[in-house]
């Protein structure tokens, strides 16, 4: 069960529309390392997770990613508000506009639609936590790349916040991996899969 709070986790106040920036930031909505995939990854993995601390982390990070999905959507909404047809044509936003107008739809910057292929839920704690740590770093790299491509401080501010959260999540998943390994035979973490095998 989830309850909606009518506020953003971090404020988004963009004064100047910028469809060119929207085209690239869109990747953090529905791209391979975006917030939709992030939330679905953790919220899917948690059901078979045997350790309560790790189930907690997957639930709470997965929930925070939904808040980040809303922040990225708010950025996209504000970047594409009140656009003229001239701005849409000149920025190259026309390829998106023809299918979605200025509606928010999750896809990568390349136009590839969101797909669950971009995340894993392998049903194995060691495998999934390595996936999660890598995912946080991939998202951090993507935010770094966005920061290389935009210069509006109104965009940079919330993007830097989201980038910082990837680092905190990476840290918490690293601790989760340590907790999982402490539960397993320290001589061989890979002897069994505690999400499946009875031991």
């Amino acid at each position: 069960m989830w309850t909606y709070e009518k506020r953003l986790q971090y404020p988004v106040n963009i004064k100047n529309p910028n469809p060119k920036a929207a085209k690239i930031i869109m990747s953090q909505l529905g791209g391979p390392d975006g917030e939709l995939g992030a939330s679905m990854r953790y919220l899917s993995q948690r059901y078979t997770m045997p350790y309560k601390q790790v189930t907690g982390i997957l639930t709470d990070v997965g929930t925070e990613e939904l808040a980040h999905l809303e922040i990225v959507s708010a950025i996209l909404y504000q970047l594409t508000k009140n656009l003229s047809i001239e701005q849409i044509k000149q920025s190259g936003f026309d390829a998106y506009f023809v299918d979605h107008t200025t509606g928010i739809w999750p896809s990568a910057a390349s136009g590839m639609p969101f797909t669950s292929v971009c995340f894993a839920s392998k049903g194995d704690v060691i495998t999934d936590l390595h996936e999660d740590m890598a995912a946080e770093q991939k998202a951090r790299t993507t935010y770094d790349n966005i920061l290389r491509l935009v210069d509006d401080p109104d965009i940079i501010d919330p993007i830097k916040y989201l980038r910082e959260r990837e680092i905190v999540h990476y840290q918490r998943f690293g601790e989760s991996l340590r907790i999982a390994q402490e539960h397993l035979d320290s001589k061989n973490f890979y002897a069994i899969n505690p999400e499946f095998d009875k031991c």
């Binding site: 953003l8 971090y10 404020p11 601390q53 925070e64 905190v168």
Partner: peptide
């Protein structure tokens, strides 16, 4: 006031994750 609310909530968001792995 919204900023104060967001700041207090952020402490909760961050500490929730911390306490999951440091209960």
């Amino acid at each position: 006031l919204m900023k104060k609310l967001m700041q207090a909530n952020f402490v909760l968001d961050d500490m929730r994750l911390y306490l999951d792995t440091h209960p």
